[in-house]
Design a binder for these strands. Structure first.
Lengths: 166, 166
DNA sequence: TATCTTTTGCAACATTGTTGCTTTTTTTAT
DNA sequence: ATAAAAAAAGCAACAATGTTGCAAAAGATA
């Protein structure tokens, strides 16, 4: 019920201390996680909260393996597969193709919904730290195709060295 | 030695008829295959010839699975993996990342060589026939990256409906 | 043709992804 | 709050994909 994750309030997190003594960030996110799941008419389960949290805490994209490693001790491999699939279907995360045959997943911006993704940004893979980032502000360019071809979606993946690794 | 695959001559293929009664195209390619392998200082083996032939005969790109199916009765799975790896290393073929986690391979144009690929064209995946094509004439656009990022390579994959499926 | 080098096939294994079914958890309606 | 219904998780078994070491076979070299 208390959905105040976006409104600034100062020093009012103490009422939650007795419920959960873990890091503050966890508590804050708990609200956001539940809200996000409800918005997508998904039932609230531990694995969905945990995996969604990984994405919210993560700057870049996550490969299935990453998620399995970070959440795998608590959850079955199959659950991770199914959860990611549900998130993709609902438009919560999107996939990023990479050259090494390991699909990465990253959070969608709010325009995506069930059955329709609208991620028109460029993806960046750093050859140094091997992270994958969504460059949300870099819009995919239009591609002029030969006669007879029509495009549904354009995916651009740039490889190089990221901001942090220069 | 007879390296005349590119020069036009008329009606001179009969001298090969007694050696191999199979389809003409096979004979012609045999010369080309050997030439190509030698150019890349690779030893001439049945599997390399066969797999290279698949690429030369194929308009679009091939997934590992395709190749295994088409050449798999004669060759071991491991050989297919190793052959593709060698071809990529030598700059004979290049990889195309796709959203379904199945890397495709396609022939490189001559500018590629050992250790350096120069494939600057756009790739096209048809949602109807599921083929992947190199659009050799469509050059990858320049992408303006945020401050701090530097690009080594830009990969563009367009999804849509191809010429043949419209 | 004999020798040396490279490649292949095989076996075994590791990783990744899928499916069916039972148990557990979550939701919904009392 | 509780019981019934619905959804999700876990488990096991399997399928597909990819890797490695080594012995046998094929190719290159002289």
């Amino acid at each position: 019920m208390p959905v105040n994750c976006c409104r600034k309030k100062k020093g009012n997190q103490n009422n939650l201390d007795e419920i959960n003594m873990e890091k503050e960030i966890t508590i804050v996110n708990e609200q956001r996680l539940i809200k996000l799941l409800k918005q997508n008419s998904l039932s609230i389960t531990d694995s969905r909260k945990k995996i969604l949290q990984l994405f919210l805490e993560q700057n870049g994209a996550l490969a299935h393996g990453d998620i399995e490693r970070k959440a795998g001790e608590k959850f079955d491999r199959v659950t991770v597969y199914r959860t990611l699939q549900v998130f993709v279907d609902k438009g919560i995360i999107h996939t990023i193709p990479t050259a090494d045959n390991s699909i990465r997943y990253a959070l969608c911006k709010d325009e995506c919904g069930e059955g329709h993704h609208h991620d028109h940004h460029v993806h960046f893979v750093c050859n140094s730290c091997n992270n994958t980032y969504c460059l949300d502000d870099v819009v995919t360019p239009g591609i002029k195709l030969p006669k007879g071809y029509s495009a549904n979606h354009v995916e651009v993946v740039v490889e190089g060295v990221c901001k942090n690794c220069q």
